[in-house]
């Protein structure tokens, strides 16, 4: 129901956004690939010595930090996401089944979404404080001695545990909201039929609710994998710019792939570092692209049933 083409008018309306997007979105996209293939790029001089196909990627991958970052990022992604998806699902099903206080609970569960990752990270670091923290106080009630979670010389696994708790906490809100809106859009007829047949609650959950919600569960899981793969701010919030507990060595760092990009960018004045940042960002892009493609493939088949 549109009128005839109006190219000139469209150009007028599109121009402001398109000019900005060209400079700050489209050009950077191509330039990232260009930078990643420059040999010995000097940022201060804006000059390079020709091109290299894999040189910068090799520098990124052979850096010991890369292995550490891959390990950390994978652990954050593949542990925190399944936990928060399952917990969020249970919470939303529970929330959907109650009437009283539903709004109040919904508000509380949504709070983590609107807060500042850095400020809350600082609060979590203090909850995990060995002497003054809340967690060790509670563990003390059960006779457990104080554990050095995030303090001086804290072990990598302790620090990672604390980070995972924070990551799950931060990931719940969005998932609960999406699941809840999904649950509320399920046709009531299914539940009426189940009630007529006196189907037990657990069967209703596993045979009606979860199958009908499965496309959404799948969608949320994959997008959360992508989001978790970009973890960085949570780590700064808890551990500061060093990305690790004070006093520990870099092998115990909680650096992630995004951390690698910004680490290289922070040293952009050194030879080739800008290209390494670009190469690391392309590696990050490739990994998130794999998740996206998997999602597109599967949701094509599964979204309608």
């Amino acid at each position: 129901m549109l009128e005839k083409q109006s190219n000139l008018k469209a150009l007028f309306y599109l121009a402001p956004a398109m000019v900005l997007l060209s400079v700050f979105t489209f050009y950077p996209l191509f330039n990232a690939f260009f930078l990643a293939f420059l040999k010995d790029y000097e940022f201060l001089l804006r000059s390079a010595r020709g091109f290299t196909i894999l040189g910068n990627f090799k520098n990124v991958i052979t850096d010991p930090d890369f292995g550490i970052a891959m390990k950390n990022t994978s652990i954050i992604t593949f542990i925190s996401v399944p936990i928060s998806v399952i917990v969020a699902l249970l919470i939303s099903v529970a929330l959907n089944s109650v009437k009283k206080l539903q709004g109040a609970f919904q508000t509380i569960f949504f709070l983590p979404y609107v807060t500042n990752a850095i400020a809350i990270g600082m609060a979590f670091a203090f909850i995990f404080h060995a002497d003054y923290g809340l967690l060790n106080t509670i563990l003390g009630w059960f006779g457990i001695n104080p554990i050095n979670w995030v303090g001086l010389n804290a072990s990598w696994s302790n620090a990672m545990f604390a980070l995972l708790v924070y990551t799950v906490w931060g990931g719940l809100a969005f998932k609960i909201m999406v699941f809840l809106s999904g649950l509320q859009s399920i046709d009531k007829q299914y539940y009426d039929a189940a009630r007529v047949d006196a189907t037990p609650r657990r069967r209703v959950l596993t045979r009606i609710t979860i199958p009908l919600l499965s496309p959404m569960i799948f969608y949320i899981t994959v997008t959360s994998f992508i989001g978790a793969f970009k973890a960085y701010r949570t780590i700064i919030g808890m551990f500061g710019e060093t990305l690790r507990p004070p006093g520990t060595l870099s092998k115990d760092s909680l650096i992630t792939i995004v951390g690698l990009v910004y680490d290289a960018l922070a040293h952009a004045d050194a030879t080739g570092k800008m290209s390494e940042a670009a190469a690391a960002s392309i590696i990050l892009f490739s990994i998130t692209m794999i998740f996206t493609l998997i999602q597109m493939q599967i949701s094509k088949r599964r979204v309608h049933f």
Partner: peptide, 15 residues
């Protein structure tokens, strides 16, 4: 472009 991680833009935008 919404699928692309922001870090890819940040590098060039910094330049």
């Amino acid at each position: 472009t919404m699928m692309i991680p922001g870090e890819m833009f940040v590098i060039t935008n910094y330049i």
